[in-house]
Nucleic acid binder design. Sequence first.
DNA 1: ATAGTTGTGTTCGGAAACGTACATAGGTTG
DNA 2: CAACCTATGTACGTTTCCGAACACAACTAT
Lengths: 272, 272
Amino acid sequence: MLQATDSRLHRNTQATFQSSIPGPEEQHTSRQNQILAALPLEVYQRLLPNLVPITLTRGLHLHDSGDLETHLYFPISGIISDSYVTEDGQSAGFALTGNEGAVGVALFLGGRCAPSQAAVLVPGFAYRLRADLLKAEFSKPGPLSHLLLRFTFALVSQYGQTAACNRHHTVLQQLCRLILSCLDRLPSNELAMRQEALAEFLGVRREGVTAAAGLLRKLGLISYGRGHIVVPDRSRLEAHACECYGVMNREYGRLLPGHREAGSSSWMLQAA
Amino acid sequence: MLQATDSRLHRNTQATFQSSIPGPEEQHTSRQNQILAALPLEVYQRLLPNLVPITLTRGLHLHDSGDLETHLYFPISGIISDSYVTEDGQSAGFALTGNEGAVGVALFLGGRCAPSQAAVLVPGFAYRLRADLLKAEFSKPGPLSHLLLRFTFALVSQYGQTAACNRHHTVLQQLCRLILSCLDRLPSNELAMRQEALAEFLGVRREGVTAAAGLLRKLGLISYGRGHIVVPDRSRLEAHACECYGVMNREYGRLLPGHREAGSSSWMLQAA
DNA sequence: ATAGTTGTGTTCGGAAACGTACATAGGTTG
DNA sequence: CAACCTATGTACGTTTCCGAACACAACTAT
């Protein structure tokens, strides 16, 4: 595990489009992760010495399916995708994790091996905690256990929603959902991903994404070129996404208080 | 919640096809649930007075999406489906739970409301534990917490696998997977489900199931009629299922030691 | 027995996505 | 500048599944 690919692309991208992601020289702290931020100071300070900063290079695999997981990762920026690759190489993503959560839930659920692949979709930074240290902390009920379990529940919801979405919704709708979900985990309205990467996550052909993206551009909902997507107005894009986006957003808002919710949003009114 | 539908059907079915499921008059114990069975005697005896038997009538909803969950259910027979229903009424199932697990993981993950619907797919019996009692037991780390988290991990794996399966595999492959997964949770090689119900779980049209089932019958892999499916040789059916069945079966075998594995199975040799 | 209900089989046109092949334009490298 | 690579655009036939309508056969009820 931990094989980085495409690091050249990463540097390019970061320089050109992702200037809002802090470079290693800029200051960033593990408290930028919302789980760590929600911990009482005392607990946080106990963990702090063991939180090791890691650069999330585009394409880096935090773990592959079947790997023994060695660390729990707390992203502070960037996006990690959870996906499955079939025997004949087709892939399907089912969850995104940003600074609202953690990667490696198998560790504290007792799963040992990862069932899926965790890869860096959008570069950023994370802090990681060694498995044994995590387990020691998790073994006593407390704020960290609580927050991690709650996040796990949100993740499970995301998995389920994706399954339903894969069954019933069009590539166009799913693309809207994916772009919006990524933006919710990024600081600006810009997303640095190629159509190829979007297609791989959705588990569809690149041409399918080209067609859908072309239509969205024609409608003025997005503008893009060569791996750089800009969304001028999220609420208009939401109108073309399937219900799954709104459902997940509500769910994350409900479960993870620190979660940044979408700006506009008729769905907020519908919330039960 | 707890609205039973189709109870007439249930009685018919039980009498005709499901005689292997114990009736209320026959003896059954909560230890027939594999999580409860794996508890040390002392812990089990502490829970026992609070385990209330419940009949799982076909179509009964243990909870609907958005419901506050009130109990954790430990099935000892029958099958519960976890599914999501879209705004326009299309449904998609993403997990099955039998006596290997429990229904209502939101309770101990801290989710409060269910994201999905839990419905009885195949009738049977369960014991249930009130939410407050469960939380009291779960708050101390111990065998029950451990087992429930491990089961949760298996469930998450199932969700993810379903998402990938929905994306890439054909109705025929998915039908094979579904039938086999059901049989793994039932005492015989017979499954009492109508094509309509199979279609609803898979999130496809009933006609699609008819076509796939017709082909399987032509190949001699199954025989059926009016809600009664018989599989003479599981291994031959496995050969027509997608990889997802084998992957999930391996995963359940690994995570839940008591899980009954499929009889034949070339995949056992591949296990890492 | 007769009529109604229910579960399954079949058909047809249409939509969505696939596989493949190739075209074009922005960006990089010599 | 020229050559090259990479990201995106386009086109065409094929497959799979959908939507709707209808036929038939098994079981049920009166």
